[in-house]
Design a protein around this nucleic acid. Structure first.
Length: 374
RNA sequence: GCGGUCUUAGCUCAGUGGUUAGAGCAUCCGGCUGUGGCCCGGAAGACGGGAGUUCGAUUCUCCCAGAUCGCCCCA
């Protein structure tokens, strides 16, 4: 049998998974810093929920993986985390509002495969349900600057403009002008000013010069009702790493309820952020192991010390192939493990261990207990 | 989903209508169980799949699959 992955899926060997975990941990920490709490929902949803006309819309439905269970129930793999969130909110009517949740999980889309685009990928979503204030939108947008440090631009657009209006005034506003000038120009042309009011509020709340008002921005999902935004990395091949917007009607439509569930949120593509970091060629470790033990005819004693290290909470490993010291040093070096412990009869006689710093090559004889502070 | 380009070892790439398809890096073994970032020796490992043309196809043609670039769409 020829071994192949499913089209549009990827494997992440340890070296890459370490980087992805790092990104994921960072995003999780920032979400929590901003007061969002975690939620997990199933990868499988009833197809009915995913295909509701109030959910993602027909475009995304074409890319939905569809399947059946043994009871012939129609199921689908979720294509985003927003629709499952809406379902969850609908099924839990006594949630305290505003409900701020984040989710870092896989989603699936049976679409074209190309650079920066696969069929199974992670989305990192943070949403606020129950507030129609533009402060909520501003909060979601702020997340990005915290995450991105610098070199990040966000684009903002108001869904309320229809395409013809935009096309007719595109030339006037797209080419030049500050955010304020764009708003001023649009005010002259548009009858309904409420969208512009919203944009202006967000700009005031966020107060970041890298937030750019772009009336031409468009998003693929049908459920957006207000301001939408897109996250763009400057100076990088991978441009869009996230997006989001306001979807005030989706939840109540899905529930066929009169209760209002104003909602807004943002979604980051973990895979695209990962790809972007790859492009920057930053240095990351290749193994999580911090200390590697090389026994010299001291297997049993070394195992005891290994046990102690793990008790101390130090990620540690040991030679189990009975290789030579040279080979073991080479091995530790090639995996960029920062420290090795050389354990021979000499060290044991003194009740000590020899710690070698792999970067400097310096060695010192110490007691095992001293490794606690490493 | 449409069009272009591509597919030879784990990776990067040579090469050929004709006996046994090469290299570098990586892997494994040995030199070498008291000291790595080296060195030396060795081993293992490949023509994406199918059909056709041909005495003979990895090489030419077609189809399929997969990669990639552009368009559409998207995280």
């Amino acid at each position: 049998m020829k071994l192949e992955r499913a089209k549009g899926t990827r494997d992440f060997p340890p070296k890459e998974k370490i980087i992805r975990d790092y990104i994921q941990d960072t995003i999780k920490a920032v979400f929590e810093l901003y007061g969002f709490d975690p939620l997990e929902t199933p990868i499988l949803e009833r197809f009915e929920v995913l295909s509701s006309k109030y959910a993602g819309g027909s475009e995304i439905l074409k890319e939905t993986f569809k399947l059946k269970d043994q009871g012939s129930r129609e199921l689908g793999l979720r294509y985003d985390l927003t629709v499952p969130l809406a379902r969850f909110v609908g099924m839990n009517p006594n949630l305290k509002m505003p409900f701020k949740r984040y989710q870092i999980e896989r989603v699936f889309r049976d679409g074209p495969v190309e650079k920066g685009r696969v069929r199974e990928f992670y989305q990192c979503d943070a949403d606020i349900i129950g507030s129609s204030s533009m402060m909520a939108d501003a909060e979601c947008i702020s997340l990005l600057y915290k995450l991105g440090e610098s070199g990040v631009t966000k684009e903002l657009k108001e869904k309320g403009f229809d395409k013809k209006q935009i096309d007719s005034i595109l030339k006037l506003i797209l080419i030049k002008g500050s955010n304020q000038e764009k708003i001023k120009n649009l005010r002259k042309t548009l009858k309904d000013q409420s969208g512009l009011d919203e944009v202006e509020k967000i700009l005031n709340y966020v107060k970041n010069t890298e937030l750019i008002f772009d009336p031409s921005l468009a998003r693929g999902l049908a459920y957006y009702t207000g301001p939408i935004f897109e996250v763009i990395l400057q100076n990088n091949e991978i441009c869009s790493v996230g997006g989001g917007g306001r979807y005030d009607d989706m939840i109540s439509n899905l529930l066929e309820s009169n209760q209002k569930y104003p909602a807004t949120g943002i979604s980051f593509g973990l895979d695209r952020i990962y790809d972007a970091i790859q492009n920057e060629k930053r240095e990351f470790q290749e193994s999580e192991v911090k200390i590697f033990i090389i026994p010299i005819k001291t297997a049993e004693e070394s195992l005891e010390i290994l046990k102690k290290l793990r008790l101390y909470g130090i990620n540690s490993d040991m030679d189990i192939l009975d290789r030579s010291i040279s080979k073991n040093l080479e091995y530790a070096n090639s995996k960029k493990i920062p420290y090795v412990l050389i354990l021979g009869p000499e060290e044991l006689k003194q009740n000590k261990v020899k710690l070698r710093d792999m970067r400097t090559g310096k060695e010192k004889l110490i007691k095992v207990e001293e490794l606690k502070n490493l």
